[in-house]
Design a protein around this nucleic acid. Structure first.
Lengths: 335, 335
DNA sequence: GTGAAAGCGCTAACAG
DNA sequence: CTGTTAGCGCTTTCAC
């Protein structure tokens, strides 16, 4: 009881395989009478085309690959969902891989996806061994970079300016009177989004002739944020603002502040980045930067498809807006 | 400048395509001297096998599909990640689709995945049109059901007993003295996990001769939980315990309680389900049920692979443990 | 408008 | 151990 093939359908409908193929792919090329007969045979047999065979004959897989740092993060999940929706609408299938923030793993996954026939790739950020770009070039697999945007880099990107967004947030905080600022971030190594955000903090400070009081790099989870905050305030008790590289760290920091009995924002202000649902549910709610996940995912999908189909696509830079909430307040004693 | 094929490699190495194929798939069947020569040609040409061609010839895609309700939920994301890790280790590729909790979409995705060559499927829960099982049967595509477990249902499942877990949690709450209990749940329609949890609540109550004070079904998000809580306490102000079908609703309910000025757990206790990171970060921390996401994902992956390769796999039921935290306390005025 | 036939790139007997 | 030879199921000229 094997699955029916084009030939089976052709036999049952009394036509050639070519005609069946046409009915399925270009119905207008077949006269209605025959088409109806063929479609009936298709239904009767419960025929479903074999994708591998089609891909082989057509020399197209209609598959797009995506390598993201992790699925266990609302920001990528939401963007990816939008990405997937658009792709599916365009008749493409999405192959997802996650690297766990490990460059080696990422390289592996990229190769695997290409081997699997990915015609285009969605990648996060720019930090990547140069050999990879060369490989993709050689394999003629286009890619779009999302969640970041660097005009100095070649290649198509659909993202936002991490540095500018963070800079705007910190500038606003400085206007509130903050002068002693510390930062908690995911490891900068191999993560250009984190580095850009860090650079944004420094830029805002520098503009006012200030320097960062302390910078703590910590694993990307709630616990990390909590411990980092405690460390910061132990070392630099004068700090009035702790800028976090993302909402998860910020939520953890909030908890850390609670543990050492500090009131947010009265004693200390804390900010995040990403505006995931968590940012709204914690108390006080997190001041953060809203990243347009969905828009980015959709735009990225359109870009990859365009790249695959026409060989070109436009860069697209989205707006990441400051999102002020209760965790950022006026410092107690502006210096 | 087309990508090199097996034939190109064969020509360059001065052997037949069969030998090259062997070098790649069963190196031990080729003598070292030839193998080295072939491998060199492979490297020189930057040869990468064509998956579609291989799948077509082998009549195997080494692809597994998964349809989950949504990616934007930590619980599925984590389980899926584990699922993916195991599959990849076994040389399989994962195709992910999400249904947005829409049965029609789910059916579509299942058909798409099968058409795409999925050799096995991971599905969430049992609620599904019977036609789908028939279709999978006909296509000879095995599936494993995760995130639920129902011994009365046929098919392989890797999950946990939603009803028993919820029942245990509520029974514990009743022992603390709660008598007026309400529930907030995601819509029960088409969601057997939600129904089972609901049944668990009812069972625990019945054992004590009690009934549910109120039952609110609401969309699955923070806002829904908040509004539902306010509604419950407006209608049944005597309620001392609000059991939520999942942590997200519970976190929303916590916020709802804060809005109407109720202290948790002094005035009202609230419980969740899933034990996602959110449960630990909100205040008070959520009493909930810990679901073994990772274990489930891994076990499910092993089960699908076994099903695909040997045609059989064992059911696997995991432990979902009660997880007591501050949001569940003794009622003020046990009746 | 429809059919015949030649591949797409690879694997898997079967010989040698 | 290695080469020869059929396909796998589908698309796509090129004739009719």
């Amino acid at each position: 009881m094997k699955t029916p093939t084009l030939e089976d359908v052709a036999a049952r409908a009394g036509v050639s395989t070519a005609t069946v193929s046409r009915c399925l792919n270009a119905p207008e090329k077949v006269v209605e009478r025959t088409r109806l007969r063929v479609m009936e045979a298709v239904r009767d047999l419960g025929y479903a085309p074999n994708f591998s065979a089609r891909a082989l004959a057509e020399k197209r897989t209609r598959t797009i690959g995506a390598v993201i740092p992790t699925m266990e993060n609302a920001i990528f999940a939401e963007g990816l969902q939008a990405f997937q929706d658009v792709l599916q609408g365009g008749g493409y299938t999405l192959l997802i891989a996650s690297s766990g923030y490990d460059p080696k793993v990422e390289e592996d996954q990229i190769r695997t996806l290409v081997a699997r026939g990915a015609e285009g790739l969605l990648l996060v950020g720019y930090d990547r061994a140069p050999a990879i770009a060369a490989f993709l070039e050689a394999q003629n697999v286009p890619s779009v970079i999302a969640w970041a945007h660097d005009t100095t880099q070649p290649g198509c990107s659909v993202g936002f300016d991490n540095r500018a967004a963070m800079r705007a947030l910190v500038t606003h905080a400085l206007e509130l009177g903050h002068r002693r600022v510390a930062m908690i971030s995911a490891p900068l190594q191999g993560n250009d989004r984190a580095r850009e955000r860090h650079a944004g903090v420094l830029a805002a400070l520098k503009e006012r002739g200030l320097e960062l009081e302390a910078m703590v790099e910590t694993p990307y989870d709630l616990e990390g944020g909590g411990e980092a905050l405690q460390q910061v305030l132990r070392d630099k008790p004068e700090t009035t603002l702790v800028v976090c590289g993302n909402d998860v760290l910020a939520a953890g920091a909030l908890e850390g502040a609670r543990i050492i009995g500090l009131d947010v924002p009265a004693d200390i202000s804390i900010t995040g980045f990403d505006d995931i649902a968590l940012a709204r549910i914690v108390r006080p709610a997190l001041a953060t930067v809203r990243v347009p996940h969905r828009d980015m995912g959709e735009a990225a999908a359109r870009a990859v498809v365009s790249l695959v189909e026409t060989g070109r696509a436009e860069n697209r830079i989205l707006e990441a807006q400051m999102c002020l909430r209760a965790s950022l307040g006026t410092p107690k004693r502006p210096s």
